[in-house]
């Protein structure tokens, strides 16, 4: 039964989920589940928690597929944004004491090498890697620390020993630059 979904567009799949087609949800999982899991793992540093995040997002999508609006971007970036935001919530949750301790330990050991390696691991698009590498380090590192490590800009400012306002504007200008250099990249 999965076969005829293989060719369907993401939007068509979401419409099918809205019609209760579980196989369409399975196809969405097949296409995007791996990337979501990898990103959640990267931010959470915990395979178990990452699986919970992905599971929760798929259940939400099943209950209310119309939360995804095709006019507001690709399904993949919608799902990745959901995975990222949920992971960050967990990392920051006050009650997750253990996670916080691990996180502080991680904060202490974040090194430049780490950051370089994770981009190689995570993003296997040559273009994406090249675009990131073309950014000035002053823009690239804040983006990486915030996005891949789930740090707040205030934490980034502590790690990089730069004013909070500077971090904010560098993240924004870096993203602006990336949106130009990655305009051609489809995900």
């Amino acid at each position: 039964m999965m076969e005829h979904w293989k060719e369907a567009s993401d939007t068509k799949l979401v419409l099918a989920v809205a019609r209760f087609e579980q196989d369409a949800l399975a196809e969405i999982y097949r296409r995007h589940g791996g990337a979501m899991l990898a990103l959640a793992r990267r931010v959470l540093n915990s395979p178990g928690l990452a699986e919970e995040v992905v599971q929760e997002i798929f259940i939400k999508l099943w209950r209310d597929p119309t939360r995804y609006d095709p006019e507001r971007g690709s399904l993949r970036s919608f799902l990745l944004a959901a995975a990222h935001s949920k992971s960050v919530d967990i990392v920051r949750s006050e009650s997750a004491r253990k996670a916080r301790e691990e996180r502080e330990a991680r904060l202490a050991v974040i090194s430049k090498d780490d950051v370089d390696r994770e981009i190689v691991e995570l993003s296997n698009s040559e273009t994406v890697r090249a675009a990131l590498n073309n950014l000035a380090e002053t823009e690239r590192r804040p983006i990486e620390l915030a996005y891949f490590h789930g740090l707040t800009y205030k934490e980034v400012s502590v790690v990089l020993e730069q004013p909070e306002g500077t971090i904010k504007s560098r993240i924004r200008s870096g993203l602006k630059r990336l949106s130009v250099s990655l305009a051609e990249v489809e995900i």
């Binding site: 971007g73 995570l122 698009s125 994406v128 983006i143 990336l178 995900i187």
Partner: peptide, 10 residues
């Protein structure tokens, strides 16, 4: 968000 999706996509 779309840029972030591209960075996080694997």
């Amino acid at each position: 968000r779309e840029v972030a999706g591209k960075l996080g996509s694997s």
